[in-house]
Design a protein around this nucleic acid. Structure first.
Lengths: 147, 147
DNA sequence: ATATTAGTTATAATGATTCTTAATTTATAA
DNA sequence: TTATAAATTAAGAATCATTATAACTAATAT
């Protein structure tokens, strides 16, 4: 299933002239198979078994490389670590303000917002980010139980 | 001009039972008069002259209080410090990927995105955030000069 | 007046991320 | 092949924004 996406991603790496080291391959594969937009530390801990000598810096290095090529996007939040998203298809996020969980959802891309912003601000716009904040179902139930 | 906004904000503070200390007043006033969404450190430095003994923690404390009351919103970004936004009217941001500048722009509130997200994800949605990334006019010119 | 609470200050602690250096691996050229 | 250069990694130190702690001060309430 995700084999195809992995092959495509590796092709992109090759085209960009970036070496495919075992660590880099592992980070990429983990991200592609993860549904939860993991943090750098989560990736690090997940790969510890396979690469006992790998350092956190390597995870960050590779995330930066993958970001530069456009295979990965970084999502930043107020108090917590960045999360990394390998889903290249256009999508938006719903973020639980209680537990931090991120859920993808799809919506017709808001291209007209980008063009309006270009007109109004004079920016040369490359992309946009749209996130909806609230309480996920699980946390809603916890809140109800408290009463 | 912004006198009215300041008075309204102070009323909100009073209603919330929060004391209006000189430091808190100064942070609020500075934010209201700023157009650039300053960082905590920028606020701290700007108020150093008036309050030589003020500590950074006080700035953070007050920003947290103002956030809790809903007078201020925190904007977070990947590599940089959070920025604080006192503009309570619904608006979106254009962010320059080169110099970090943030420019406000207006667009009809995307309420339908929130309701779609509620349906699809089961979240209880409270608000959304929408940002457009690109290169501001000034940085576009710098880029052209390089050639 | 006195007790209680909130706010401030100063500084230490935390925690995510980046930097530095040396070692190691991989690619390229002779 | 072998030599050389370039990229990557590992380890740990350094940085920097933010938060926590403890002592002190000011405001408020009884």
């Amino acid at each position: 299933m995700s084999e195809k996406r992995l092959r495509q991603a590796i092709d992109t790496l090759k085209e960009s002239g970036v070496r495919i080291t075992p660590q880099r391959h592992a980070v990429l594969e983990y991200l592609l198979n993860s549904m939860v937009h993991p943090t750098a530390d989560e990736i690090y801990k997940a790969l510890e078994g396979k690469f006992p000598n790998m350092s956190v810096a390597t995870v960050y290095n590779n995330l930066r490389v993958l970001k530069e090529i456009g295979l990965v996007r970084e999502l930043t939040y107020g108090d917590a670590s960045s999360r990394f998203d390998c889903n290249t298809s256009e999508h938006y996020h719903a973020i639980c303000e209680s537990c931090g969980k991120i859920v993808d959802f799809h919506y017709p891309p808001l291209d007209e917002v980008e063009s309006l912003a270009e007109q109004v601000t004079g920016f040369d716009v490359s992309h946009h980010r749209m996130e909806v904040y609230g309480t996920c179902e699980a946390c809603q139930q916890v809140a109800t139980q408290k009463h």
